[in-house]
Write a protein that binds this DNA or RNA. Structure first.
Lengths: 188, 188
DNA sequence: ATATTTATAGACTAATTAGTCTATAAGAAG
DNA sequence: CTTCTTATAGACTAATTAGTCTATAAATAT
């Protein structure tokens, strides 16, 4: 792990635990085992670090989803896989998932350009549009279906993290959660 | 408007615009037209103000929903009304809706007791449980249905606020949004 | 080898800001 | 009318902290 990666990992952990403002750059540097100057060498400002971390996590997730989109499977299968993977990703990367929400509801979001934001849902868009065209999904705007999809992922995530479930139970909830989403989004 | 109310209203506006840490208490006091000492007379600490504001907004919303729950109507009608009202409330009180999310994804949340948090969904719980018992809603845990409900409100809200829609369009989206939610939650 | 760039260290500072302190004013109670 | 409580004001401070500065060390290129 390079010093830069250590800084990122430590920043993620501390930002999630104590918030952006509750985390001094000095603490990040100290817990990452690097000097103050090193942090500011890699990131011109604290704000730069906050934004870079966001973009990195978003990229990681988008690339993750892209793999499922690219697979040569029937569109409804893909759709199911993407949902299940998204929930599982959120559950196994809670810090990262939380960080995205934390960032989304902060003034930092305004610093990310609309294009960058769009790029992160770019993978979905074409895929969802195809589903609509082929009359597998409801005849509604792509972005509405994406919003509902995300809202549903979020809802299932909230439910699972609010309780204490066995792995098998979790899987069952996710599967049934998918069925419920499908009831919402399927054509007719 | 009392000085205290002015402080709350100004704090809400500034916290949403600039974040918790981006808003000095001195600025809140100045823009509310009160002295520094007055703010700290009403709220022992800045943190107290942040938490009090959260509880106030949550209470307001919970009381709002309660009115619909108490109405003497058929349960499915109530359900629909609550969904539509929730989306409309979020749309006409964007600052407050945003503030709740901002707070939920901040370390401040840990300062709100589990009971207080539960109390805010208390109204829903009995009502949803009734719907499940009467086999109008899916045979799933109450809290799962609430999570999905909230996730869906959030999704529709996101979609509407991300575009520029006429009032009539908004209404149509909300109504269709409800139909989609109902497809997910209805029994069979 | 030597020069240049990249990476790291850690002491220092200038600015910011939460909260305190003292002084009053307004209102309620006796 | 006077005592006590509540509400308001605004100057002040002690602590925190983002970012700078200078010095090297390591790596890369010439």
């Amino acid at each position: 792990m390079s010093k830069q990666e250590k800084i990122q990992a430590t920043a993620l952990r501390l930002f999630v635990a104590d918030g952006f403002h509750g985390t001094p750059t000095a603490k990040i540097a100290a817990e990452a085992g690097v000097a103050n100057g090193t942090l500011f060498y890699h990131y011109k400002t604290k704000n730069d670090l906050v934004v870079a971390l966001y973009n990195k996590i978003k990229d990681e997730h988008a690339n993750n989803v892209q793999v499922f989109i690219n697979r040569d499977e029937f569109i409804t299968t893909k759709f199911r896989n993407i949902f299940i993977h998204s929930v599982n990703w959120a559950l196994t990367n809670r810090d990262k998932f939380y960080y995205i929400q934390q960032f989304n509801f902060s003034p930092h979001l305004a610093q990310v350009s609309a294009e960058t934001l769009e790029q992160h849902t770019f993978g979905y868009a074409g895929f969802i549009a195809e589903g609509i065209r082929k009359k597998l999904l409801k005849q509604q705007p792509v972005s509405l279906l994406i919003s509902i999809f995300n809202g549903h992922v979020y809802g299932i995530y909230q439910y699972i993290t609010s309780g204490d479930f066995e792995p098998a139970e979790k899987e069952k909830i996710i599967n049934e959660g998918y069925d419920m989403l499908w009831d919402t989004l399927k054509y007719m």
